[in-house]
C-alpha cells in the first residue's frame, strides 16, 4: 500500500505510548493472538541473555589469535554458529576490521538495523535521529561527541546497513592491553567499540 492511501488506525489508540502499548496488548491477548508469558520470555532474553558480551567474546578471541581472526573475517557464520550466536537480526554477519589507516563505523539510516545476537538491542543513541542523520555526513564530529579523536591520517568509513547484512567492527587492540588474556580483554571491549564509536579501553 503506498504512503498516501494508508489508513491511520493508530490515531484511535490512546496517545500516551505506554497506554497505547497496553491497549494493543490487551486487545491481542483477549483474541488469543499473543501470550503474555511469551512476551516476558522475549524481554528476559534481550534483557538478560543476549548482549554485547557475545560480541566481546568473539572479538577478544580474534584479537589474540590471527588464524581465528582470518576465519572470522572470511566466513563468520560458521564460527558464530559454533558459539551459538546466530539468530534474529544476525542472519548475515560481516566483520570489518579497523586498522591504523581505516576506522569503521556502523549505522542504519533507514531504521536501526543492528547485529542483535552479538550486541543485543541497540542503545537509544544508535536509534536516535541525531546519530542516524549526522554520522553519514560528519562522522568525525560525531566521534568527538563520543570522546574519540582519530589520528589525522586515519580514514573513516561509515557502513550504512541498508540490507540484511549486519556489521560488527573489529577494533584495534591498543599496545597497553597486549598482555591481557581472552577473558580480561572481553571485559574491556565495549559495545560502542564494536559499533565503531569507541576504542578499546574507553569507558562506555
Amino acid at each position: 500500500m503506498p504512503h498516501d492511501v494508508e489508513k491511520h488506525s493508530h490515531s484511535l489508540l490512546p496517545s500516551d505510548p505506554e497506554l497505547k502499548v497496553k491497549a494493543l496488548e490487551t486487545a491481542l491477548v483477549k483474541r488469543g493472538l499473543i501470550d503474555p508469558a511469551a512476551l516476558d520470555e522475549i524481554i528476559d532474553t534481550y534483557q538478560n541473555k543476549i548482549g554485547p558480551k557475545n560480541g566481546a567474546t568473539i572479538v577478544a578471541k580474534a584479537l589474540l589469535d590471527k588464524n581465528f581472526k582470518k576465519a572470522l573475517i572470511g566466513d563468520p557464520m560458521q564460527i558464530l554458529e559454533k558459539h551459538g550466536f546466530l539468530g534474529r537480526q544476525g542472519e548475515h554477519i560481516k566483520v570489518i576490521e579497523n586498522t591504523p589507516e581505516l576506522h569503521n563505523i556502523v549505522v542504519c539510516t533507514l531504521c536501526s538495523c543492528y547485529p542483535w545476537p552479538l550486541l543485543g538491542i541497540p542503545p537509544t543513541w544508535y536509534k536516535s535521529d541525531e546519530y542516524r542523520s549526522r554520522v553519514v555526513r560528519e562522522p568525525r564530529k560525531c566521534l568527538l561527541e563520543f570522546g574519540v579523536t582519530l589520528p589525522e591520517n586515519t580514514k573513516v568509513r561509515v557502513w550504512d546497513s541498508t540490507a540484511e547484512i549486519r556489521y560488527l567492527v573489529l577494533p584495534i587492540l591498543p599496545d597497553k592491553y597486549k598482555d591481557f588474556d581472552e577473558e580480561q580483554l572481553s571485559e574491556i571491549i565495549s559495545r560502542d567499540a564494536m559499533i565503531g564509536t569507541a576504542l578499546i579501553g574507553d569507558q562506555s
Binding site: D35, A38, E41, I42, T45, L86, G87, R88, Q89, E91
Partner: peptide, 17 residues
C-alpha cells in the same frame, strides 16, 4: 500464537534473506 516455550527457538532461528 507464539508460546513462551517456543520463544528461544524462534529468536535463535531468525529468517535468512
Amino acid at each position: 500464537k507464539l508460546l513462551a516455550a517456543d520463544v528461544a527457538g524462534v529468536l535463535s532461528k531468525g529468517a535468512p534473506t
